[in-house]
């Protein structure tokens, strides 16, 4: 049952690393992380700050600059390329279920996405090594940051999977998922714009306020509401992807 899933995940993951796209994504992300690290150090040098480093890192503009385009670029080829080249037909005529295919592609994208964030860990440890200040580098905050990255990644990548399953063109897939990702990002500011503090609308707006959630995560605060929000929406988008892939077999 799990064998085709593992085989497929492995293939998807290796295909990121045998083409230049995978390295280009990682290089781009590493470059932006390096830049933000430089900005961060510069700030700290001018004025020491009591806030955790991860939160400071989050406060640099580069964070969203990495996160927002990454998901569409990582996921665009998952289904679109296979549909375009026709290998989707050879794939779906093997005894593999649609669920396995969707989950394998999503897993591979997620693993690649986490690998992409590894340089951040390196930055944090470099800082820790030279500053010798365990307070500034709270392990809870680091764990929170990575949990936030993981959850946001799940949401954005599942959205990307769905977009890729809709079309045969990688560009169109990237456009759709980028529009979705930007839309979700901008929805974060609804809470500020509406100037609401109570009521169900404020609650609803808080649920989609990705920027606020990430701020909390980077601070080391894990609220269950965003966690549930991210996981359920990931499941929802993966379900939609499954339905799209399965729709070929509807009568």
């Amino acid at each position: 049952m799990t064998r085709p899933y593992l085989t497929l995940t492995r293939r998807e993951l290796t295909s990121y690393f045998v083409s230049w796209t995978g390295y280009a994504i990682i290089a781009g992300a590493a470059f932006l992380m390096g830049l933000s690290f430089v900005v961060l150090l510069d700030k700290l040098r001018q004025q020491p700050s009591p806030t955790p480093v991860t939160e400071l890192f989050y406060a640099t503009p580069f964070f969203w600059l990495i996160l927002l385009p990454a998901a569409p670029v990582i996921t665009m080829r998952l289904f679109a390329l296979e549909k375009f080249s026709g290998t989707f037909e050879t794939l779906m005529t093997t005894p593999v279920s649609e669920v396995q295919v969707v989950l394998a592609k999503f897993t591979a994208a997620l693993v690649f996405y986490l690998v992409m964030w590894l340089p951040l860990l390196a930055c944090i440890f470099t800082l820790r090594y030279f500053s010798n200040d365990p307070v500034a580098l709270d392990p809870g905050a680091i764990a929170g940051t990575f949990l936030g990255l993981l959850l946001l990644g799940c949401l954005f990548l599942s959205l990307g999977c769905f977009a890729s399953a809709l079309t045969r063109s990688q560009i169109v897939a990237a456009m759709i998922s980028f529009a979705g990702v930007i839309g979700l990002f901008l929805a974060s500011f609804l809470l500020d714009r509406a100037e609401l503090n109570t009521g169900w609308l404020a609650q609803a707006f808080y649920c989609v306020a990705l920027v606020d959630h990430m701020q909390d995560f980077a601070h080391g605060v894990v609220d269950t509401r965003p966690v549930v929000f991210y996981l359920s929406f990931t499941a929802f988008f993966l379900f939609l992807t499954f339905r799209v892939v399965e729709s070929r077999r509807w009568k």
């Binding site: 295909s15 083409s19 290998t87 037909e89 050879t90």
Partner: peptide
């Protein structure tokens, strides 16, 4: 089954 145009993964 071999579909029309024999699609393969060129990077493998």
């Amino acid at each position: 089954y071999m579909p029309e145009n024999n699609p393969l993964h060129p990077e493998m």
